[in-house]
Design a protein around this nucleic acid. Structure first.
Lengths: 240, 240
DNA sequence: ACAAAAGTGTTAGTTCTACACCCATGT
DNA sequence: ACATGGGTGTAGAACTAACACTTTTGT
């Protein structure tokens, strides 16, 4: 096949292409990211995002899903391409182009996987350790993207279990934006979207009265995901 | 250096990494993109985006700026990373990962460049020809991104000359969103942003009365770029 | 009965939107 | 004087934000 390649192709230096995945979870208290202690050089023993190389016949999206699955055991989770990083010296060992993805998962579905046995750990965003290469930049960018997108679209539901209460949802928003939200206005806004279906059951763990569980109306969720819903008042100043 | 590379690195197949650039311009009538007739195989003679390979010691952003400069002769223009495409068979000649960028330029500053002599042409978005590989998908994605972003942020000013009138600006928005806009409400909205500085001079080409020229207040523009300005009423249904 | 969280109601202020109307000027 | 696009004004509707109050229930 080489002989029919045009000159411009043959003259290029190929590069390695990798995937890094920023995995977000919410434990009810804090927004967290999943990091792993790196098992290989360079940076062995330091904390890092989970990544991997793109296979020879593998699509980028599929590679990201594979990496995520190997780490968490999960499939069919929210996964979005964030940005591609290509500083010539970002990886000191070889010229590597890195396509960063971020994922939002229900933290309760996560299970430590055999191949990462105990090397993976959830960190609160604020307390995340320094990461290798340019990964801190990736995490910052991912946080900004999540904040931006979630201010307009019902993104954060991806972090909650199937059943959740409105106070839980509100707490999630408050954590993500680091700001208190008026519960009365929040309830009204959320209800007015029509995305939620009220269940009979109550969660009594948070109060004596208990809070009703809701679930997402998946159909309306898909239909309205692109709409501008404005969950957050005055988001301008909160997006950093 | 090879001998100190960890095994996982050595085992990977490197790939080619290219840049494609979707260049937008506005001629006062239509939103247009700049395409070139391809000079090399594969796809020689067909229309395509302008692209190039990423140099061995070249940053992605810099590579995009270089490609754009070689095509248009312009520097310091609005350039944003769009998305990275990596379908294994997207380029039939070699496994090539493509990082797509889009650019917004003042079409009047564009000059046909010697190295593209006559091979470049502006196409109205609707009348763009089929492109090679997955480039039509890239163009669609770029259009969606521009529409999305411009609905919230003062992005489209990048397409206008330094001096412009409000009717010109309104026409640009109408073209981009394919919908008529009430001129009275539009003027109020634009004025209320405080981004514009009114000049003494008038443009008499469009009417007897003439329309005042404005220029951007660059400082406020930078400061407010991230704010949600909502130039477009009910953008939800217009974003496709 | 009381504490503490869940949830409903109210109201003033702002922003939107759909209009009608006046302005400036070359012919 | 008049046609044509440029620009200002206005009023009702819709939305927002700030706040007071009622409900539920385990102790």
């Amino acid at each position: 096949m080489d002989d029919i390649k045009p000159n411009q192709y043959a003259a290029q230096t190929p590069m390695l292409v990798s995937i890094d995945c920023i995995v977000f979870g919410f434990d009810g208290e804090n927004l967290r990211i999943l990091l792993t202690k790196r098992g290989l050089e360079p940076g062995k023993g330091r904390w890092s995002l989970t990544g991997g190389f793109v296979g020879q016949k593998e699509d980028l999206e599929r590679a990201a899903a594979r990496v995520l699955h190997e780490l968490t055991g999960l499939k069919n989770v929210y996964l979005e391409q964030l940005k591609t990083y290509g500083e010539p010296l970002r990886d000191p060992f070889a010229r590597t182009i890195c396509v960063a993805y971020f994922a939002l998962i229900d933290i309760r579905k996560y299970q430590d996987q055999p191949n990462h046995e105990g090397r993976a750990k959830w960190f609160s965003i604020d307390e995340a350790p320094p990461l290798i290469f340019d990964q801190n930049e990736m995490v910052n960018e991912a946080c900004r993207r999540v904040r931006y997108k979630a201010a307009l679209h019902p993104l954060l539901f991806e972090l909650l279990p199937q059943k959740f209460t409105i106070p839980q949802l509100q707490n999630l928003y408050e954590q993500v934006y680091g700001t208190p939200i008026d519960n009365r206005n929040f309830i009204r806004k959320v209800s007015s979207t029509g995305l939620l279906v009220k269940l009979q059951e109550k969660d009594k763990s948070g109060s004596r009265r208990g809070a009703f569980y809701f679930r997402l109306d998946r159909k309306k969720y898909r239909a309205k995901f692109q709409s501008f819903l404005n969950f957050i008042p005055n988001p301008d100043h909160l997006l950093g």
